[in-house]
Amino acid sequence: MGHVPRTQVSSNPIIAFFQYVWSSLITAAKGLRVTGYNAWLRERVTVAYPKQELDLSLRTRAKHRVLVDDTGDPICIACGQCQRICPDHCILVTRKKVTVTTPEGEEKQVNRPDEFVIDLARCMYCNLCAEVCPVDCLHLTRDFKYSSGDVHTMRIELEGLLRPEPLSEYEANQTDGADDEGGEE
């Protein structure tokens, strides 16, 4: 294979000595050239985070978000699938029956979440719960700024999951109507 060549030195110790001296200087100079190039000519890559922020990808998985319908109610049907699949047991959904009026004016009994709690401190953001949801109501968004010194505040109730910003990839695709627009903002 085309390996990096190994060091070759003369068998004559005197020549080998000067070969060592010479190669030390030359290779050090080569290294210095690269580091010097980086120091002076290549742009910096670090971002001073709290002051500057990078755009996160739309697929970034952070805080959950529960979608709502036009009336502002969550569209979750409290089927409990997300609770069942979550490997970390961080979702708790309980069911209640509510009566809603459909656009046609009929009264209908539907299942709605009574209690919907996600313990983000335990969550590993695997996206399994979002994928399993039959009505596409649970999504992971780019909202990552909810760290806290108190682990109990990481237990987020339903109200905390309704914040409309930022959009998840799913919603972005819905609103743009352009599936192939994903990935970039």
């Binding site: 010097g36 980086n38 002076w40």
Partner: peptide, 13 residues
């Protein structure tokens, strides 16, 4: 600062 320069970083700011 010099190490930051060489390493494509920003250093103390």
């Amino acid at each position: 600062k010099v190490s930051a320069d060489i390493q494509s970083r920003v250093g103390p700011l």
